[in-house]
Design a protein around this nucleic acid. Structure first.
Length: 141
RNA sequence: GCGGAGGGCCGGAUGGCCGCGGCACCUGCAAGGGUGACGAGGAAAGUCCGGACUCCACAAGACAACGGUGCCGGGUAACGCCCGGCUGGGGCAACCCAAGGGAAAGCGCCACAGAGAAGAGACCGCCUCGGAGCGAUCCGGGGUAAGGGUGAAACGGUGGGGUAAGAGCCCACCGCGGGACGGGCAACCGGACCGGCACGGCAAGCCCCACCGGGAGCAAUGCCAAAUAGGGACCGCGCGCGGGGGCUGGUCCCGGACCCAGGUCCGGGAUACCGCCCGCAGGCACGUCUUGGCCCGGCGGUCCGGGUUGGCAGCUAGAGGGGCGUUGGCAACAGCGUCCCAAGAGGAAUGGUCAUCCAGCCCCGGGUUUCGGUCCGGGGUGGACAGAAUCCGGCUUACAGGCUCUCCGCGCUC
């Protein structure tokens, strides 16, 4: 639940992230996982942004709660259970890394995996994709 | 060394950085925080069998129907599984394969080809008699089923005798049928002797026989909370009398708008009835001289409609698994002793990422060579099938590559 603390990204073995994609966050608000079907349906009716490796849906809840919530979905198009689980786990890792800093407080996000790409694309590229999608969603709001 | 048969096992490793899940302990009023060990597979898969466990149904058992199983014996909680054996078939062999009960209970079917396909049959033939013709040969009657031909299958096979030609017509052996007796728990095996041959195949077409099976499933099932909502309609019992009033109620009437329906809403009007107000009567407890206070309408049943989501339990220690020893058994397996191991998620944890290495594969250079390889150096690529979902026992299917044991055949060497 704690975001990666220091700007450690340029030190050690982790390759530097893209410059427009900061991973640290100054105001650590909590983020939780979506579990209710209704939340998923609500997000699906809201704004969306596709990228090469994923589809991102975002919704301003307008309920006064500043928590960021996020859900993950991979349909059978992504592959068998092993492939779907792997895609979800990569999305989850991405969300943990980027959402606290890049997401808008009070919003719900749903990350949807794509066949082939989500499981196979290099992690850096995934990171860029999510940043791009979040920027577009925020810009349109 | 080459080729083959049957098992067993593994199915990437190590280390940074960042995470997740329930559990235990510590800490905190709490929210939370900290520490610790643990946390996917041989198939977790397909959901094909067998159970455990729940709920429903029935309660003696059974019949019928439907479904399943099907050589014999054993193992097991049980099985369609496993082990051992038998029979038939394949292979030089190790070994493999088989829905492998009943075809003299009955029905049905046996395509094509063929003359004939179940008490069948004569196409080409073979033999004989009669007739015609100089003759080759032809025509007609009869006998026959050895040979040819068809077929998955042609009513025994081979040899000999026999005959006009033939034929179990006769004989020997084989096959087939019956079978005293012997062996085996049994499937089955052996078989003296008898029979001159009768009884084709398909039961994975129906069927018969024996045995087994009540149905549905963890989205089972139980509890809690929230919401519809303190919803609507109808029935029964009960509802004391008189008066007043038309008020934000009910009811009724008129007009309008809406609802899946029950019905709802808005405007206007009416006031017999109900609520309301007043008086009297009645009841209750207190109080008690009068008087004052409170209650005065609900209770029971049937039906309709709406809602149909959260949370907790079930939920992981049980016919548990594994190692070693031991006893019984050919074995499957069972008993005993001892030690070790044992995930519990719930939009679903068990990971994300980076580096180094190891198999494997490919390429380049060099050495060697019996031209199949092999050794050294360098580079690239790179990890099969697949994710617990109530839990066990099986089966089936998928699977890169690798390790290992036993056995068989051939070749070589001593």
């Amino acid at each position: 639940m704690i975001p990666p603390e220091a700007p450690r990204s340029d030190a050690g073995t982790t390759p530097p992230a893209v410059s427009s994609c900061p991973t640290q966050s100054n105001d650590p608000q909590k983020w939780t996982v979506l579990r209710k079907r209704a939340d998923f349906l609500a997000a699906a009716r809201a704004r969306r942004q596709g990228t090469g490796s994923m589809l991102v849906q975002g919704r301003d809840r307008r309920d006064g709660d500043l928590a960021i919530r996020v859900g993950f979905t991979c349909s059978k198009k992504v592959g068998n259970a092993v492939a779907r689980n792997r895609a979800k786990r990569r999305l989850r890792a991405l969300a943990r890394e980027l959402l606290p800093a890049q997401g808008i407080p009070g919003w719900d996000y749903v990350l949807i995996g794509k066949a082939e790409e989500t499981g196979a694309r290099p992690y850096d590229a995934l990171r860029r994709d999510l940043c791009y999608a979040l920027r577009k969603l925020a810009g349109g709001a």
